[in-house]
Design a protein around this nucleic acid. Structure first.
Length: 414
DNA sequence: TGTCCACAGGAAATACGGGGGT
DNA sequence: ACCCCCGTATTTCCTGTGGACA
């Protein structure tokens, strides 16, 4: 009875302090492309990315003069809106062309997750309706021929947007060779390739013979500044939150933090989202203090996510180190750490690696920022790494739980 | 000054596993 | 179905090293 009352009251208070109106506007993944375009339109309307849009217009203007634009390479860090801007723009162009009766078709080839040449071409073929999805059994050449003959049936302009081109593993050269050299020679459509990458120098790695063939225009998307981010965030807030759910100066703060550290719009929205969640849980409006807390929590989540995604061995190594350095409050030497690691491995029936391999694990943990390992000599008493953990108490606790869960253990171990 | 500790970390060998070719 | 090849993970082997101590 009491419990029921309490739950009821809690739900009421949550509803009363409801801050989020539509969560999907805080999470890009959940937004339909149509909605995304609407949001974007609003963003471009307030002159964010104006320069880039102008650049794109200039690049594609030849289409309307019955001319052939050269290829385009778009560079810029993650979260600078490369993909979304260009997609929006292509959509516009297509509508415009339809109005003017210019045949045009564009395809978005998403390589966000790395794949080999075969997969990438297979994806392309699928979009073109030229072939089924194969895992193997069909030669690259066959695949290329099918794509060619399909494209052969098209008229006018064919725009191929390849997102994150540098994610083509292994045989990027044959992939590019096909697109840049072979394809244009064998089809009638005017092919325009658009590459996206966050590596400024991705072109340096490609075969010079292909490269010399590749007439390309480069375009750089710079990270957003605080002003742009503020505009972007304001639009999201308008859609996603109830009015009055956010305190004075919070938008400015999020924009300032984000522009200073990365200029990534996605991360800025993420910070906003986390703040809103926290505020709702505490039944308050979003304040600058809550933003700070959200920032910290996002930071912690990164560590947790990273260790979750890591191999078991690394998890075990981390566990051995964080439990080891805790009660002695001091640094841990490699030998001791390795001993702890071994006994932990025994306990969880994991095959323990050699000390040599363990040492590499420690280096990896160091690089990821879980621990600090510095080489120190104790003279006669040997040379060893001193491993220290500089993570907050809560985070250590969280990480321990995560690792133990990964190993299916109950959270009790000395 | 030489010794020697307790490892670091490079190189090569080996094990493993999956995908492609036939 | 089978084999081969290649990339990656791990082991084995090895040489190198800063400085306290005698």
């Amino acid at each position: 009875m009491q419990i029921e009352n309490r739950i009821e009251r809690q739900i009421e208070s949550l509803l009363e302090h409801n801050i989020i109106r539509d969560r999907s506007y805080l999470d890009d993944e959940q937004l339909f492309r149509n909605e995304q375009f609407k949001v974007l339109k609003a963003i471009f309307y307030v002159n964010v990315r104006q320069k880039e849009i102008d650049g794109l217009s200039a690049h594609f203007a030849p289409i309307f003069r019955d001319d052939h634009p050269i290829h385009l390479s778009i560079l810029g860090k993650t979260g600078t809106g490369k993909t979304v801007t260009i997609l929006y723009f292509l959509n516009l162009i297509r509508n415009l062309c339809t109005k003017k009766n210019i045949p045009i078709r564009y395809i978005y080839l998403d390589l966000t997750t790395p794949k080999p040449c075969f997969r990438a071409l297979n994806d392309l073929a699928c979009f073109l309706d030229a072939s089924k999805r194969y895992k193997k059994g069909i030669s690259l050449d066959e695949l290329m021929c099918r794509i060619e003959s399909k494209i052969q049936t098209l008229q006018g302009y064919f725009i191929l947007l390849i997102d994150e081109i540098d994610h083509v593993r292994r045989d990027m050269d044959s992939f590019l060779k096909f697109l840049v050299k072979r394809l244009p020679q064998r089809v009638n459509v005017r092919l325009v390739l658009i590459f996206t990458s966050n590596k400024l120098n991705w072109m340096e790695a490609i075969d010079p013979r292909v490269k010399s063939f590749l007439k390309i225009n480069e375009m750089v998307f710079n990270p957003y500044n605080a002003l742009d981010l503020k505009k972007i965030l304001s639009l999201r807030i308008e859609k996603a939150l109830h009015p009055g759910g956010i305190a004075e100066g919070v938008v400015e703060k999020i924009a300032a933090i984000s522009s200073r550290t990365h200029g990534d719009a996605r991360k800025a929205v993420e910070l906003l989202s986390k703040s809103a969640q926290l505020a709702e849980k505490e039944g308050k409006v979003i304040t600058v203090e809550i933003v700070d807390k959200a920032l910290e929590e996002i930071e912690q989540d990164k560590y947790v996510a990273m260790i979750r995604a890591s191999p078991k061995q690394l998890q075990a190594a981390l566990f051995a180190i964080i439990t080891g350095s805790k009660h002695s409050t001091k640094v841990l030497h490699t030998g001791d750490a390795y001993g702890r690691y071994r006994s932990f491995c025994d306990r969880i029936a994991l095959r323990a690696l050699t000390q040599r391999a363990f040492s590499d694990l420690v280096s990896e943990l160091d690089m990821c920022g879980f621990v600090q390992a510095r080489l120190r000599s104790h003279g006669r008493y040997g040379r060893t790494k001193e491993i220290a953990v500089h993570l907050s108490k809560e985070l250590i606790k969280k990480l321990k739980q995560v690792v133990l869960m990964e190993f299916d253990l109950n959270p009790r171990w000395p």
